[in-house]
Design a protein around this nucleic acid. Structure first.
Lengths: 225, 225
DNA sequence: GCAAAAGTGTTTGGGATACACCCATGC
DNA sequence: GCATGGGTGTATCCCAAACACTTTTGC
């Protein structure tokens, strides 16, 4: 390209991949598109990002408006995923999309105009644009994060049982883990601690409730070489 | 933000962090800025990205023009790093920068107008904009990639000794590794193979030359949980 | 023969995996 | 007392780390 006085930037958009775990299944939030292109097809919540607003600010506004989800209140963690910019990805014209991913727990989307709901990532409907690729990208990222961060905290309430935590790991990894080995692994990480409380939930022994040592999501071990 | 007919996108720019390793030191390519802001201060090569061009296409053009480096010919690997978008990062106005990182070997930058050269990452001069943060981000990413990809191939010629390879690891990790353990680690990875040739380079035993099994950079082990 | 880098082997500790039994509760 | 999920211990294997001597070459 040439730089010139006629410089015209592409449209800048934002999209968001919001994950939560329900009944042991990883789910992603989608909204049904209100207008063409892809009218009535399911898509990630997204919209325009204009000059003067960071892409995260735009994302916050767009997700609130289109999906009724308050990023700051209802998501425990948000991070930038990737920027998608192929010229043909939007039939209306060249749009560069900065995509964020967010994780939360017990999220209730609200949209008075369009259908907005969570889908199991393994049972997705037809998806608009390149949003299927974006979801897969987010899913890979989340899986990778498991190994060296405390990102699982974002999917759980402040107090939880080790079985709850194991369910989160299993939903993200899509495989079963051995309970005894899992518990030893977790306790050796110095990531959670016993709160002294228990949860009684039926005709069986009550489970101890745990809490994360750190409230923020970050790296917990480095594993270099 | 509001969506309206007066939608104005921010300026879209691209920057590139190019790393190579010289004499056991990780180096990054910088160019001296030709005009304000930050005139004569060192910065990452970068420029505008206009409608109709992917950010990678724009990056390719900009890096060729401002630093004389041909991304396709002289870099063994390029990947998108992150998008930086704080409103205040450019004093001229809101600019969203999609940043790429690239790795190569024996790169000779050429710029007839402005000074363009490689600096040791541990001996950087004053840096324009938020480019120091960007370089650190790229460095962290590179370090992380070491553990589970064959990214080191990008820093080496097609045939190399295990000592050469160890030098690459040490430059990126900023620490010395035990030669015996390093060699066992590498050979256990099934990532390189003995070519049957040797390199004689002085008053000592010749070293075997190795080559990567795969020509492309990618994940070589998964390590999940 | 000596300097300089290449090449190799053993031991030890910790984490990952595989696997089976007892505990506390509601009904 | 029995069904249900919670909680624990042991043996094995593999990988990471610590560590020192021999080999091949040029001069």
């Amino acid at each position: 390209m040439k730089i010139s006085k006629q410089y015209v930037p592409p449209t800048l958009t934002v999209d968001m991949v919001i994950f939560q775990i329900i009944d042991g299944h990883l789910q992603v939030l989608l909204t049904q598109r209100a207008r063409p292109p892809f009218k009535d097809v399911w898509a990630l919540p997204g919209g325009y990002s204009g000059v003067g607003y960071t892409t995260l600010e735009s994302t916050t506004a767009v997700v609130k408006r289109k999906a009724g989800v308050d990023i700051n209140q209802q998501l425990a963690h948000v991070e930038q995923l990737h920027t998608f910019d192929t010229v043909a990805r939007d039939p209306r014209g060249h749009a560069v999309a900065v995509v964020y991913s967010g994780y939360g727990q017990d999220i209730k989307p609200v949209n008075p105009l369009q259908k907005t709901k969570f889908f199991d990532v393994d049972g997705l409907p037809e998806i608009a644009f390149d949003h299927k690729d974006i979801i897969n990208h987010a899913r890979d990222r989340l899986r990778t994060r498991l190994a060296y961060t405390n990102v699982t905290a974002a999917f759980l309430p402040s107090r939880f049982t080790l079985t709850d935590l194991q369910t989160v790991y299993e939903a993200i990894l899509s495989r079963k883990l051995d309970r005894r080995n899992f518990r030893r692994h977790i306790t050796s990480l110095d990531m959670v601690h016993d709160t002294g409380h228990v949860k009684t939930s039926g005709a069986h022994r009550p489970a101890k409730l745990y809490a994360y040592n750190s409230l923020s999501i970050g790296v917990i071990k480095s594993r270099l070489l």
